[in-house]
Design a protein around this nucleic acid. Structure first.
Lengths: 95, 95
DNA sequence: TAACTCATAACGTATCAGGTTACAATATTT
DNA sequence: AAATATTGTAACCTGATACGTTATGAGTTA
């Protein structure tokens, strides 16, 4: 069960990876093999981290791809849970 | 680190939720508040489990939405990792 | 036979990742 | 100060995918 509002994975990426290394967004994008606009979108919370992007991050920053995708999942789930009560779903039991 | 080929989340859904209850795909779809085609696509591995669908499943089967979405993430990541060596990514270090 | 169940194809809509190009606002450097 | 670098973002395009409806064919059960 998720207990607190998870941050944008992009926010974590910026604060824990990009800024500590002192590299520019432009150079990081080059290293990741993606466009600057795509990285910028992630860093500013406009785009999520796709499975492929998680693998790219794991290579570039020597981390685990799982941790990146899990962060994204938890963020997405937090958003989805906000509308739990609006879903027309009934409990299912044996026929 | 993921060690073995994760199953389709839809496969798990079918074997651990639908079949044990002895309910039809049609009735399960009704309970979930989605179309029969959408559920069929998931059960047969043609579609993934979206964050919203994870919440629906958690309500209908009294489970955790996290477990469903994590299963999907692990499945997606397994697929993405297959192409790890095709990605043009370089290790990033301090400027 | 008739009714139910299911997978799937065809079609449309919405969302989203990702790319390119271009522009404006800051920083930084010379 | 002037020139350069950096960044966010808007506009536009493509491709993938979730989801819906409708229809069809196959299998199963009453």
């Amino acid at each position: 069960m998720l207990m607190h509002n998870p941050p944008h994975p992009g926010e974590v990426l910026k604060e824990l990876c990009i800024e500590p290394l002192g590299i520019t967004v432009t150079d990081a994008a080059k290293g990741l093999g993606i466009s600057r606009k795509t990285l910028s979108s992630i860093l500013n919370g406009k785009a999520g981290i796709s499975p492929e992007m998680a693998v790219r991050l794991s290579i570039a920053f020597n981390t685990s791809s799982e941790s990146w995708l899990n962060q994204q999942s938890q963020y997405d789930l937090w958003e989805a849970e906000k509308h739990r009560n609006e879903l027309h779903v009934t409990q299912l039991s044996a026929a």
